[in-house]
Simulated scan of single mutants.
Amino acid sequence: MYAVIKTGGKQYRVQPGDVIVVEKIDGDAGAAVNFGEVLMLGGDKGVTVGAPLIDGAAVAATLIETRKGEKIKIFKKIRRQGYRRTNGHRQMESVLRITGIEGAGEKAKWDGKVELITKAEINARARGLAPRVEAVEAEAPKAKKAPAKKAAAKKADAAEGAEA
């Protein structure tokens, strides 16, 4: 199931589990956010389009982080007058994890766990540079079991040496 929501003067197509970056929303990290401005819903029963909004539809999200966006440079120049001015700006933005969509007789929930991770890690994951959390957790128990096997192998070697 998916929905099209409106926030900050822009429209976003979202599904449960998506991470989106929108204009700044008030709240602390981990706070629940609800969007009532749902313009369209799509799911198993087909597409429902609002006129302009769908009554009773809502999208639930969790606020992961509020941060500054990428730097924008503003450069002004008047030729042959020696006038040059450079300024910069960084817009505040919020990172959200969509946790649920409901409306038009349907509900969709995201079953995962919302983790509050940093901007650097989000960007690295988006580019495929950071290892997935599940892969790191799967490797950790293997590393713990390996020394136990080595210790058992040393004991067996010692026992064989004692028999000879």
Rank of each mutant, 00 (worst) to 15 (best):
T86F: 12
I98T: 06
F75Y: 09
K73P: 02
R97A: 12
L41D: 00
M40D: 05
G69D: 10
K73D: 09
G42Y: 06
G46S: 11
I74N: 09
D44C: 07
I98E: 02
I54W: 05
H89E: 03
I54N: 04
E93K: 13
R85Q: 15
G42P: 01
Q91R: 10
L96Y: 03
K68C: 08
E37A: 02
E65L: 15
T86H: 09
L96F: 02
V49M: 05
V49D: 08
I72D: 01
K76D: 12
D55M: 12
D55W: 07
K68R: 07
V49G: 05
M92G: 14
R80C: 04
L41T: 02
I54T: 01
K76N: 13
E93S: 13
Q91I: 11
Q81W: 05
R79E: 14
G56A: 04
R80E: 06
I54H: 03
I72H: 02
K71D: 03
G69V: 06
I54D: 01
I74Y: 07
F35W: 07
I74C: 08
L41Q: 00
A51T: 08
K68S: 09
I72Q: 00
A60P: 15
L41S: 01
K45F: 06
A51I: 08
A60H: 15
R97I: 14
I64H: 00
P52A: 02
L39P: 05
T62S: 13
G82H: 12
E37C: 00
R97S: 15
R84V: 15
G36A: 04
K77L: 13
I54P: 00
I54Q: 03
V47R: 12
E37F: 00
R85A: 15
A51G: 13
L63V: 01
A61Q: 03
E70C: 10
V59A: 11
V59Q: 08
R79S: 06
A58K: 14
V47D: 09
A51L: 10
V38P: 01
K68L: 14
R90D: 02
G82Q: 13
R85C: 15
H89F: 11
G50T: 03
R90M: 06
T48G: 11
Y83G: 08
G88Y: 07
V38S: 02
K71S: 00
K73H: 07
E70R: 14
F35P: 00
G56K: 02
L41P: 00
K76F: 14
G69M: 10
E65M: 14
A60I: 12
G82V: 06
I78K: 11
I74G: 05
S94L: 01
G69N: 08
T62V: 15
E65R: 14
I72F: 06
T66E: 03
E37P: 01
T62W: 09
V38M: 07
F35R: 04
Q81P: 04
R90P: 00
A60E: 15
T66P: 03
R79Y: 11
T86Q: 11
Y83N: 06
A51R: 15
Q81D: 08
K76S: 15
R85D: 15
I98Q: 07
L96D: 05
K45Q: 06
Q91W: 05
R97G: 10
N87A: 14
T86C: 10
M92V: 10
Q91A: 11
R90W: 04
G69H: 05
R79H: 12
L41Y: 02
E70Y: 11
K73V: 08
K73T: 11
R90N: 03
K45T: 08
T62H: 14
G42A: 07
F75M: 11
N87Q: 09
M40L: 05
A60M: 14
